[in-house]
């Protein structure tokens, strides 16, 4: 019995700390611009339930978290071709209920934002991101890539 208890406690000891104390952000959904035509900007709203970028954030209740996006101004394509990518004043949103329609805080993702996690056990919230891509009339076809950096500071 004692051996069993030891095994159980070791097992729980290995599993519980992470579950109980975990903090972090995971990318759930890419910011997707759908069909893009040369010369026609494509806008994705942060409230777009399908195409907006979504990041889930886990932490402790009532904890303050500072979010800072580092956003590319362009995506780079073939032969160093670029495609402008823009973010505006209302393109980031925070939902304490992880619902795209319930964003209690919105902000300009080009600036830092400090949020307080909900007063619930092991809260999990969502961040939504919208943006605009503006292909030129003579945009070169090919693959375009960019990197979004999300800095998350747990206080």
């Amino acid at each position: 019995m004692r051996a069993s208890l030891t095994i159980i406690s070791l097992a729980l000891g290995a599993a519980l700390p992470l579950a109980a104390q975990q903090n972090g952000v995971t990318g759930i959904r890419d910011l997707a611009f759908g069909t893009v035509f040369p010369g026609l900007p494509s806008v994705v709203s942060r409230t777009d339930a399908v195409n907006s970028g979504r990041f889930d954030l886990s932490g402790k209740k009532n904890r303050d978290v500072q979010l800072t996006f580092v956003l590319p101004a362009v995506m780079t394509g073939p032969l160093a071709a670029t495609m402008p990518l823009a973010f505006g004043a209302d393109d980031a949103g925070y939902s304490p209920t992880q619902s795209v329609g319930n964003e209690t805080v919105t902000w300009d993702p080009r600036t830092s934002q400090t949020l307080t996690l909900p007063n619930t056990a092991n809260p999990k919230v969502s961040i939504f991101l919208g943006g605009r891509v503006s292909p030129a009339v003579n945009q070169r076809a090919g693959g375009y890539t960019g990197t979004v950096i999300l800095n998350v500071v747990f206080f």
């Binding site: 890539t145 990197t147 979004v148 998350v152 747990f154």
Partner: peptide, 14 residues
């Protein structure tokens, strides 16, 4: 081709 937006997440703890 495909459009690709890579994401880098920096988690910062004390």
């Amino acid at each position: 081709v495909r459009v690709q937006l890579n994401l880098v997440v920096n988690t910062n703890i004390g």
